[in-house]
Design a binder for these strands. Structure first.
Lengths: 85, 85, 85, 85
DNA sequence: TCAGATAAAATCGCGC
DNA sequence: GCGCGATTTTATCTGA
């Protein structure tokens, strides 16, 4: 950016504000990603197998999702036989 | 898994701790992802085109040189198959 | 699931049949997706840039008018936040 | 395309060939997607709840994936303690 | 450092 | 027309 941004219009300023908010959130996300890397690096330093840890985390996540979806399934059934709303 | 997880050993406890730290970070990331969605939803509510905003953000994040190079390669490919007269 | 699926009823059998037909179709779709990957892999082996090829395919599939409109809106947004001098 | 494609170069012809192969595969995929819609429409016509059918299919898919991943997990453990290659 | 694999994001399209 | 689910694309990460 060699020139000052010409956000002279109201809409331009508002748009830029939205964009910058999103960019800020994205940076925080990236930072958290780096934190994850650090933690896994630390685990590796203690002799743990990072690949296995990732797999465990993934499987635990699947369990959670599956439990949620089974509940949704039940709700769906109940809706469909007129037990809800 | 018929047995409770073996968090009784020292290594087991340490491993679980690493796993939970990562999971916590992942949740925060997910939460930020939801925040992004909220912001974009708000922008949409004000009449902005979310798809375009995303594209702008993406372009702002890319290196200008790299962007140009990719565009040139794209043009080259399109010329080579007769897409550009 | 402690009980076997109730495919003993007529409706249950019919339902299962629908489900399996859809699953079969989904597998075929997946298989075609793998074929696409193979072709692109082959192209890559010949020195082509897969990412660019994907983009070309995408552009060929888009309506020219719609494409222009989106580009214009993008320019408009970028101007309004001062990205285009 | 008002002009004949100028795929005069060897590379251009090869590139176009790859592109057309992918496009053909994509069409087949799309066609299968339509078939899925037809099957679900038929199920709906017989009084079944399409949303539930989709959910069942999704859960069955998750089961399959989870089973596979648990196996991979075992393999990983065994590798990590030196039981495999 | 790069290819291949894996996971995350963005886009697309249906159904309500 | 909007949210949700599915698919596709992008980015990250690991291993050679």
């Amino acid at each position: 950016m060699t020139k000052p941004a010409q956000t002279n219009t109201v809409a331009g300023k508002e748009l830029l504000s939205f964009i910058e908010r999103v960019e800020r959130l994205n940076e925080e996300k990236k930072s958290l990603g780096d934190d994850v890397k650090d933690v896994l690096g630390e685990a590796k330093g203690k002799g743990f197998d990072v690949k296995i840890i990732r797999k465990v985390i993934s499987l635990r996540g699947q369990d959670r999702v599956k439990r949620q979806e089974e509940q949704e399934m039940l709700d769906l059934y109940m809706q469909s036989i007129g037990m809800m709303g």
